[in-house]
Every structure is written in C-alpha cells, then in structure tokens.
C-alpha cells in the first residue's frame, strides 16, 4: 500500500487507540501493529507531531525496573480531530465500497 496513504490512516488508528485508554510508546506500537503492518520507527514521529499539534498530552509514570514511561492522553482537540478524520474515512470508505459493489454487480 502507498506509504503516504498508510500514514494518513495511521493517524486515525493512533487517535482511536489512545482514545480507548492512555498508552505509552511500546504499548501503542504493539496495538497499532495489530491492524497495520508498519515500520515501528514511523509511529514515534507521528506521536510527536500529534503532540505538537495539541491532539495529545503526555505525562510520565514511574515504571518498575526501568526509566519512567511517557503516556499519551487524547485532548478534547484530539477528540475533535479523531471524529473529523473518522467521518472523512467513513465517507471515503463508503464511496470506495459503493464503487466496488457497483463494479462487481455489473
């Protein structure tokens, strides 16, 4: 699949994943890789960007036997963004599905 397209979808997936519960880096990577096969390295830059855009907030939690973990939490702005992306995705998904269905029925 086109990587840029993947990245666009990835943004939505990450937002949805964090909306369920606050997550730290590794947790998010394992969660996302369940859905899309993507390079681990690309997720962090995305998190960084979403944090810089104020869609995420971060906070540190001490972990047992290791450095403190940085948790990502969805902000209200992030929630809005998520809904927005979701509706775009639905629209896109629907129109593509309809198009394919029409093609198959003929």
């Amino acid at each position: 699949m086109n990587t840029q397209f993947k990245k666009g979808v990835l943004e939505l997936i990450v937002l949805v994943a964090v909306s369920k519960k606050d997550m730290y880096g590794y947790e998010l990577i394992s969660e996302v890789s369940r859905v899309v096969d993507i390079n681990d390295g690309t997720i962090y830059p995305l998190l960084k960007r979403l944090t810089n855009d104020k869609y995420f907030e971060t906070y540190l939690v001490e972990s047992t036997g290791g450095p403190p973990r940085k948790y990502y939490k969805l902000t209200s702005l992030g929630k809005e963004k998520m809904h927005e992306l979701k509706s775009t995705w639905d629209q896109f998904n629907n129109s593509v599905n309809n198009f394919i269905k029409e093609g198959y029925n003929e």
């Binding site: 840029q4 990245k7 666009g8 962090y44 830059p45 960084k48 960007r49 995705w89």
Partner: peptide, 23 residues
C-alpha cells in the same frame, strides 16, 4: 528524516485540517 519531518510539518501546519488535506 521522518522525525525531522514531524517538526517541519508542525511548522507548516496551517491548512492541514483533514485527512484529504494531508493527502
């Protein structure tokens, strides 16, 4: 490069409002 791009995109983020825009 991707990490650095994340900063650049942030700086340019004005009309990147939705998914189609990012495309």
């Amino acid at each position: 490069k991707e990490i650095l791009e994340a900063y650049k995109l942030n700086a340019k983020k004005v009309d990147e409002d939705d998914f189609l825009d990012s495309l």
